Simulated assay, not measured.
Amino acid sequence: MDAGLTEQLEELRARVESLEQGGQENKLSMVVFSGDLDRALASFIIATGAAAMGMEVMMFFTFWGTPLLRDPKKSAPGKDMMGTMFGAMLPKGAPAAKLSKMHFGGLGTRMMQGLMAQKNVASLPQMIDLAAELGVRICICDLSMSLMGFTRQEMLDYPDLLYCGVATFLEQAMGSKVQLFI
């Protein structure tokens, strides 16, 4: 058989396989919209589980999920009034996240954190570290950061942290086998 014809046949075979799989790759793309402790834990448990199974994982933090990635040890001086207000009203990083239900003025959150420690369940900051070790990519929504007055200087030191818009996330999600919104 002609080499050119063999090459065309292989290309067609690859296209058919891609169409049979829906053009999707072994990827997980996740929108993290909530900054609640229980939802954030679920997000990181799913993300690290997928990464451990060999999936490429991207977490897109937007709106109320964005404050989870603030570093409690960092400050960002020179913010405008709205940025200062958002900064004061929203949790400063993962350690400050609260339960979505049964918070009870902080008591429910402390009880859950104590129970997690007792049962050797990783804390949210530990889950973030594990995600970094497993190569989970994190993207923070530029628009959300701008609206809430957050700066890059106050975010966590996370390997290859990406600041992007929705188009970058959607490009990733279009080829993903799994897409989640938490």
Rank of each mutant, 00 (worst) to 15 (best):
C139L: 01
P67E: 04
L124C: 09
S146Q: 13
R137K: 14
G114F: 06
G23W: 02
A167F: 03
K79A: 12
W64P: 00
K74E: 13
P91Y: 01
K101S: 00
G65N: 12
Q21R: 06
M174A: 15
A88Y: 11
A40K: 13
A52R: 06
G4F: 11
L68Y: 09
L90M: 13
L180P: 00
L69M: 15
F63A: 13
L90I: 06
F169M: 06
T6M: 05
S18D: 12
A131Y: 02
S100I: 04
G87P: 11
A47V: 11
L90S: 05
P91L: 00
E17S: 14
L69V: 11
E171P: 14
G175K: 15
E10T: 15
G165N: 04
G49Y: 02
G4Q: 14
S43F: 05
Q179E: 07
L68K: 09
Q118E: 01
A50T: 10
S123W: 07
A50C: 14
R39A: 06
K79I: 13
L12K: 12
M112D: 13
H103Y: 13
L134A: 00
V166T: 15
P67W: 04
I128F: 10
V178T: 14
L41H: 08
D142V: 12
M112A: 15
T84N: 08
T66W: 11
Q153V: 12
E20L: 08
L161G: 02
Q21G: 03
S123Y: 08
M82T: 02
G135S: 03
S29P: 03
T6A: 10
S123Q: 04
S146H: 12
A14I: 10
E154W: 07
A122N: 04
W64E: 06
F150G: 05
A40Y: 13
S43R: 02
S18I: 04
R39E: 10
I45L: 04
N26G: 01
L28C: 07
L147K: 11
K73G: 11
L180Y: 01
T151P: 01
R15Q: 10
I182L: 13
G105I: 09
S18R: 13
S176F: 10
E171R: 15
A167P: 00
S75Y: 00
A94T: 06
E56K: 08
A3I: 06
D157S: 15
S43M: 09
A88G: 11
G108S: 01
L161Q: 03
L156S: 04
M59V: 15
L12A: 14
L115K: 08
P95E: 03
R13L: 11
L9T: 04
P72H: 09
